[in-house]
Nucleic acid binder design. Sequence first.
DNA 1: CAAACCGTCAACCATTTGGTTGAATATGCA
DNA 2: TGCATATTCAACCAAATGGTTGACGGTTTG
Lengths: 113, 113
Amino acid sequence: MDKPLDGIFAALADPTRRTILIMLLEDDMAVTDVAEPFEMSLAAISKHLGILMRAGLISQEKRGRVKWCKIDPDALRDASIWMQSFGQFEAVNLEAFEKFLDQELEGDTTEPF
Amino acid sequence: MDKPLDGIFAALADPTRRTILIMLLEDDMAVTDVAEPFEMSLAAISKHLGILMRAGLISQEKRGRVKWCKIDPDALRDASIWMQSFGQFEAVNLEAFEKFLDQELEGDTTEPF
DNA sequence: CAAACCGTCAACCATTTGGTTGAATATGCA
DNA sequence: TGCATATTCAACCAAATGGTTGACGGTTTG
């Protein structure tokens, strides 16, 4: 019943989690550093990261007392294939993506950049 | 706060709604016919269709007493662009999609086909 | 050792979600 | 007109979600 795509899409449905993914796209980060720009508790971010983990969208590795988070694009690939099926829409368009990224980030109360 | 992608991804996070989209990919359908294969009330399906509507994933048009549902790929295009950004993964692959579609449908208790 | 730091856990809370049922509305048909 | 069909609405419910706080267990550092 609980299929992989359920978790992937549910994880992507939250703007905080999408912003975290965008941040991790730039570079791997420690949990505390991920949390820093957001106006919510560390525990809340820790939960978000757990959801992204279980969805397979990120992986985490503990080195010393620091837990490093890195993006894992394989799960997104699955979801993307599913979506592409509906795709009369054109192929990847980086310019269009940047526009979307801007929309995503502007007006975000948890604005990280 | 409530961005378009929130609604789109949230709508896709439910397997019933994804199955409905797959059904509508084949052809436009009336609400009652959409509901027929599922083991849940018509009212529940009506709610699901409302969620897909508000997400922009389908459109509905009433002709007589029948309300026809048709898929609307534009919203998916938006979500797809967002996801593609993470895409070191290869371009659209119809074969891979069909495999996913099979996985999606098999073992679904609300199996429509 | 002791203090500071990193991150999670547990308990709690308000809101949302996904379902139910029964009544209501709107249309088509005999 | 009167009945059947198509769909939604309203009220309700249990479970999941997204957040909080405070305590806790590792790890590093002074």
